[in-house]
Amino acid sequence: MKVLVPVKRVVDYNVKIRVKADGTGVDLANVKMSMNPFDEIAVEEAVRLKEAGKANEVVAVSIGPAQAQETLRTALAMGADRAILITVDGPIEPLSVAKLLKGVVADENPNLVILGKQAIDDDANQTGQMLSALLGWSQATFASELDLGDTTAKVTREVDGGLQAIEVTLPAIVTADLRLNEPRYASLPNIMKAKKKPLETRTPDDFGVTVSPRLRVIRVEEPAGRTAGIKVAGVTDLIEKLKAEAGVI
């Protein structure tokens, strides 16, 4: 069984981003970029399926600038077998990503696509669901446990009230939540090996997909800030302040 894993190059999760003064966007110049954390989890899950003998090939795919090759090399170093980069400069919306991924699925015929549940830059939480819709496949979002069989998969999902278990027929789309696994660090030898693994480059034209945005970004601004308050000496002081000053208890 073949597993496809879409991975996005995003601002590293430790970076505190800055909004550009002219309100046109977020300043990404000289900012550390990494693989979207949820996508690391997705890669890890796919690699574990291969190690368990349930999958025989893991293909990583990224849509983004040429530098997204680094993200794909990370996926290869974690254990993916080969990689596909679809080069697009500038931001790209989930709907366009889903259309491109649909094209990759048509070429590759995977039985399973594992995506991250959300990209930590746009926080959209859409692409997996959209891809599933475009393919007419089953979908299991926010997965914290995946039990893959031959024709079905049992997935435990993180939902508002706790957990929900569902069974999906294959081929299926799964989106990874935080507790699906703990991704490994790639070892140095594996990083070296990854440099020799195949990485193929394509363009949106190859898939006949136009990637023009549907949402017009009018402005990007800083959120209303909070200023640090005061330190209080102890519990008595705190209760007094919460009652008299803040009026919340």
């Binding site: 919306e93 989930p94 709907l95 889903a98 959209a124 939480n125 859409q126 692409t127 997996g128 669901q129 959209m130 891809l131 599933s132 819709a133 475009l134 979908q139 979002t141 926010f142 999902r157 993180e158 939902v159 508002d160 945005p213 549907r214 949402l215």
Partner: peptide, 19 residues
Amino acid sequence: TTTGKNVLPRVAALLDVMQ
């Protein structure tokens, strides 16, 4: 909610809309 997030993007793609 987790239900809204699960269902609506699927609707959006079926209608060729960006959510």
